[in-house]
């Protein structure tokens, strides 16, 4: 595995999002933190990818830069055909609104809205028509049919994350980012959510990029990339929990 080379997808499809020499430096008072250091990585359409690495390795920062939530210090990020480096806040907001889905670790949902309203929120913000059939399908897939009119306070953590997944997938974004989506869940609920994410890639052709530090979670993905100290250090296709652990073990040394 050659470091810092664009990861060409094995099947030759065009990447949903790709970076070139992506570098992010934080100004932490007197010292500088190089959170990302010349990262070159691409994520294939219709695939489920995981980003792994120890705490502080730059996973969240990478995801934020990929999703247009944060701007790169240097290098570039392309979402589909769009070069997003240098876009202003307005354009980035529109990009997120129209082409990107999000699932966060916690507090994903607006407490004042019902599950249904939360799921429909991005479409409303974007002023998009909602395809009722797709809505029904997704709601059934995540198993929320009878919880639609509940507010988040009345849902379990797993149910809340499933609402977040449904919300992210409803508008079939170009790419969905998930930052430790199972970090706050017990293993059974976590497994459910990960199943949905995998199925949505396999069956609905969604592109999913998930940040995690859990090898079990990573094993659901089609591919895992490893970060350390802001650098892309390794990757693994068709991972299993054991192979991921094994790879982490090697990297630690």
């Amino acid at each position: 595995m050659s470091e810092n080379s664009p990861n060409d997808p094995p099947d030759g499809a065009s990447p949903a999002v790709i970076t070139r020499d992506l570098t992010k430096v934080f100004d932490a008072g007197d010292s500088e933190v190089r959170a990302l250091d010349s990262v070159n990585v691409g994520f294939t359409r219709g695939r489920f990818a995981a980003i792994m690495g120890p705490s502080g390795s730059g996973k969240s920062t990478l995801m934020h830069c990929l999703a247009g939530l944060d701007s790169a210090t240097s290098g570039s990020v392309r979402v589909g055909e769009t070069e997003i480096t240098g876009l202003g806040d307005k354009e980035l907001t529109l990009l997120r609104r129209q082409r990107i889905g999000f699932i966060f670790q916690s507090f994903n949902l607006l407490p004042v809205l019902t599950a249904r309203q939360n799921i429909l929120l991005p479409a409303q913000i974007a002023g998009r028509e909602v395809d009722q059939e797709r809505f029904d399908h997704i709601v059934d897939v995540v198993g929320l049919r009878d919880r639609l009119d509940h507010t988040p306070a009345k849902l379990s953590g797993g149910q809340q994350q499933r609402v977040a997944v449904a919300r992210a997938l409803l508008s079939s974004p170009d790419v969905t980012f998930a930052d430790e989506p199972t970090g706050n869940l017990d293993s059974r609920s976590g497994a459910e959510v990960l199943d949905f994410l995998r199925d949505s890639a396999r069956e609905m052709g969604q592109t999913i990029v998930m940040v995690t530090h859990d090898p079990v979670a990573a094993a659901y993905a089609d591919r895992v990339v490893f970060l350390r100290d802001g650098r892309l250090v390794d990757e693994l296709y068709e991972p299993s929990a054991e192979s991921v652990l094994d790879r982490i073990g090697k990297l630690e040394v």
């Binding site: 129209q98 607006l110 929120l121």
Partner: peptide, 16 residues
């Protein structure tokens, strides 16, 4: 704050 951040992530502009 978190909620506003999430709304912004979902595509709400600063003006909104």
């Amino acid at each position: 704050a978190r909620e506003s951040a999430m709304l912004r992530a979902l595509g709400l502009t600063r003006g909104q």
